[in-house]
């Protein structure tokens, strides 16, 4: 049985100035083929002007079970937001 082509994650930059954004994945034998497959799959309607492909196996993802300890601590730190500070309305540009 032949080996399955590895999976690649595809990122598209819609236009210069914007960051590449994850759009999906493709199977391909190597990076070059992955770019071509990504082009055919994800940019047929002028969705972008630049592609990144990254071997899916290279992505280290956070564990959903850890979401609490990773992200909840931000919830009670409202002072990281400008609206936490009350500044009278007549004081402008701040």
């Amino acid at each position: 049985m032949s080996k399955e082509w590895p999976l690649w994650e595809v990122f598209v930059r819609a236009k210069n100035g914007l960051a590449h954004k994850h759009v999906g994945s493709v199977h391909a034998a190597d990076g070059r083929m992955a770019i071509e497959a990504a082009r055919d799959t994800y940019t047929r309607r002028m969705e972008g002007i630049s592609l990144w492909v990254v071997p899916s196996a290279s992505i280290v993802a956070s564990d959903p079970n850890d979401a609490g300890e990773l992200f909840e601590p931000a919830a009670d730190k409202v002072y990281r937001h400008p609206t936490f500070y009350s500044i009278p309305d007549h004081i402008k540009n701040i």
Partner: peptide, 26 residues
């Protein structure tokens, strides 16, 4: 591009810095 995008993130975060400082002065 990468500098501009870093600046967007930074500007978003700076606003609280200035307000907390002004609040101290006030």
């Amino acid at each position: 591009g990468p500098y501009a995008r870093a600046m967007v993130r930074i500007c978003k975060e700076e606003s609280f810095h200035q307000r907390q400082g002004y609040e101290i002065m006030m």
